[in-house]
Design a protein around this nucleic acid. Structure first.
Lengths: 215, 215, 215, 215
DNA sequence: AATGAATGAGAGTTCATTCAT
DNA sequence: AATGAATGAACTCTCATTCAT
């Protein structure tokens, strides 16, 4: 049951009534996000960010004391983008397998339709190994994701949808790593990374429904 | 002056008598590699590379016309490091499962003992999405790896070590993505990424030997 | 927020009911004065001045069209501070020597207790060599001081308290220079600059009462 | 015996064979010195310094890591200028009064002919109150000067050229302050500051040769 | 083969100032 | 009377690159 169709419409996170300067701040963050996606941190220039947001550098510095602060803003923005997408429009009452496939499907869709997110996330991961502040946020975000997933897995095992001997923690790790790995791979070989057979194999692994090797 | 994290002995595998300047070139590349691992591309300064290799920037430019050339050197060096490690001491005649586990094991060991490689690889992947030259090399390297792995998988299926219905291509992709994903994860949470249960689950998936879920 | 080093009471001598915004103006000037004393002209930032006065830069510019105007305010404030102190509590009918010593004593006291004044004055003198407006004001202030002093000296010569052959003009110059010099010196070596023997020697010089060198 | 003989043979700072880049360094320092004299620290711009020395800012930074380093260079240069000038062409065997007058005369000459030195010195004094490094150097320089002068005074008292009851330490302080004060004054009123009668009065004070005030 | 000296082209950041409200 | 937001112009400092030696 592939069918992981998720309605995109309700994804606008920002509320209508934001404190006055907040809009501009977000515009700047969004501009920075786009530029990081396009050129990486290496190619990120405050002047470009500012002009893409329709202001001057001085204005950028009015909102973000330093470039580092701006980057932290991008960090938060990106993580939020991820989180929101994941849990927001949750069709209740799915069976665990369907739910899991839906989640993985969303990621796949994102990889195909909004690869910038992953490019930025890759850059941020790169930074995380040097910047503790970023590392902490990413860890936290990962931790929430793991919780989500392991609950589903646990439920699946209980409901006998997944294998009885499935190691939930390890499986969670695998799914996390797989997701990250596919996003890396999609940078190099999107064709391979997004092959649907991959999902089929994942399903087999989790459910154990297949022809076992005999010896 | 952190010594290059990789023993020198392994790294001049082919030629014993290098042309005059070749040594210095490699020293520079190694220095650049170390610095990228420490500070990322963002923090890579030709001056630092040169001084770590014991020469001046001017000398660096004698060996590498531009910084970009140097980076290509690092690219080659890193890929080589990867390849070498993989196939170097290959105990012949292993059964496919053991062979596969050995390969994955080497990666794990590298993640634990020489994480710089992955940090650099992450940086390079980041670049690959923008630099076609790098992308090409990484693709080529990946392609070789895939060939290696799928051969083993195919052999395993034939020998009935692995599941009969294992989709070799998809499984290869999964293993590649998993490996990449674990290296990303190990930057954030090495404890989780290197959990041995993960390998156990992978084995179950490939072999199909476990208690299937009933319905 | 270091309080201005000078008591407020003395400083609004003339008008008791100041026009509406006058108070804020003075608060700004005082803040600027303090900051110049602390960091010099080099380190004077309108933003800091404003925030120390409890307003924003925009407000500062409402009161002082440009930074230069503000500085002129500080100039006037400082000179006034000097003048006031000098003549304010004048015990009438002192004999010239006592009067002179009193005046010099006040300066000494200021150097010890309110060195900021001299630091600012030094900065202003520095500026005077480039800014004619400031130069003019300082000259005027000096001219008044000279008049004061030379009257006392003249009276002293007449009353035979000072030497008969004292060159009043030259002596006035010397006393002015000495005072300035001591304030400079007190920045480097307050201990030496404020040595009381200095005053004794000055007295000997003016009165001629001492053991002359014989030949 | 005068004994204040300090062989200054070794004071020629720039030897004919300077280490290669040393010349450019000095040229930059000299340019900075000139600009400080003209515009004060406030108006000191690295670009201007560089271009006056015939190089670009980048080159300036090649020689002086930061602006602060450059300023320290100016400091040393200025102090050296002072020290050298003082003792350089020393007609041996003068009597103390003549010697002292000569020294004061040199200063006067400098004030008239090379007022920049004093302008810079004034700026530096201003800084000294905030920058310990500069303060230390200026103190040291002052200390040497005091030693010089007090030796002459002592000799003068011994030889009965100066008053028997002259307080040498206090007189040294007075002469130092007077010199500083005159340089300040000369910025405002060169005419008055350089009046020769001032020197006459100083002489009277030191020698005590005049008509004392009777009572 | 190697370097000291020099530089053009920017980078991030600062600051006095303006203006609509 | 007071301010938040915005900016132009400039500032110090950096960096990959060049070139005569």
């Amino acid at each position: 049951m592939p069918a992981s169709a998720v309605p995109k419409a309700d994804l606008t996170p920002s509320i209508s009534h934001t404190p006055h300067g907040e809009e501009k701040r977000e515009e700047l963050v969004r501009a920075a996000f786009d530029l990081i996606a396009e050129r990486g941190f290496e190619g990120l220039r405050t002047r470009d960010v500012a002009s893409r947001a329709g202001v001057t550098v001085a204005t950028l510095h009015y909102y973000f004391h330093t470039k580092e602060h701006l980057i932290r803003g991008v960090m938060a923005f990106t993580v939020e983008k991820f989180r929101t997408r994941l849990v927001d429009p949750r069709p209740a009452d799915l069976d665990p397998l369907a739910e899991l496939l839906r989640i993985l499907g969303v990621r796949g869709q994102q990889r195909r339709q909004a690869p910038e997110i992953f490019r930025v996330l890759l850059e941020l991961t790169t930074r995380a190994s040097r910047d503790p502040a970023i590392k902490a946020i990413m860890r936290e975000s990962d931790s929430q994701w793991r919780q989500n997933i392991s609950e589903i897995l646990r439920a699946g095992v209980e409901k006998r949808v997944f294998r009885a001997d499935l190691d939930v923690a390890a499986a969670t790790t695998i799914l996390g790593a797989l997701s990250r790995g596919r996003s890396m791979l999609s940078m190099l070989r999107p064709d391979i990374s997004e092959d649907e057979h991959v999902d089929t194999e994942v399903e087999r692994w989790l459910t154990g429904r297949h022809k076992a090797a005999r010896r």
